[in-house]
Design a protein around this nucleic acid. Structure first.
Lengths: 84, 84
DNA sequence: TTTATATTTAGATATTTGTCTAAATACCTA
DNA sequence: TAGGTATTTAGACAAATATCTAAATATAAA
């Protein structure tokens, strides 16, 4: 759960997930949505990947990112039991 | 949501919440559960308080901490819509 | 093969974070 | 009031983090 919480602890990364909720996007399309340089967005995507919150697939010159929410299940159930 | 995610992004703090799920505890009782100095635990409790994940009440020399899970609601619903 | 586009890697830097020790504050009890 | 216990505050420090620029890599197109 550590890596997931770490990945979620950043507004930009949470907004990236919100974007990917709508549809898969290339790294460049994601970067265009923010006032941050591409290398910085690439770094954010790497952290999201490490947490398995996104998956990526290379297609030609592009890298397409997709949302993966299955890793949220543990956090969700932890929070639910915390609420009891 | 920022402060809550920040507060949750630490194993010690999440374990403090787990402890408080069982029953209210004084700062000292919480500190005893960890191999960390009391000032450090106090700092963690401060971060949890700022996020409103715990409330505290002074009773004599003691400060009693309680869990407050209502601030998790926003996060929970955000995660649920992310899963769609 | 050369040039252009998409993305990541490397390295630097300022800020934030978790931890510590020492000191301060607050309350209780004799 | 004096001494003891509980907790927090202050200040320091090493490690982690978010960001940037410059360079490297990979693919596509001319």
């Amino acid at each position: 759960m550590n890596k997931v919480f770490k990945a979620l602890n950043d507004t930009t990364r949470r907004e990236i997930l919100d974007l990917l909720k709508e549809k898969d996007l290339t790294a460049g399309e994601i970067a265009e949505a923010f006032n941050i340089t591409k290398p910085s967005i690439s770094h954010h995507l790497d952290i999201l990947s490490q947490a398995d919150l996104v998956t990526s697939e290379k297609r030609g010159q592009f890298v397409i990112y997709s949302l993966n929410t299955t890793v949220l299940d543990d956090i969700l159930s932890w929070m639910m039991t915390l609420r009891k």
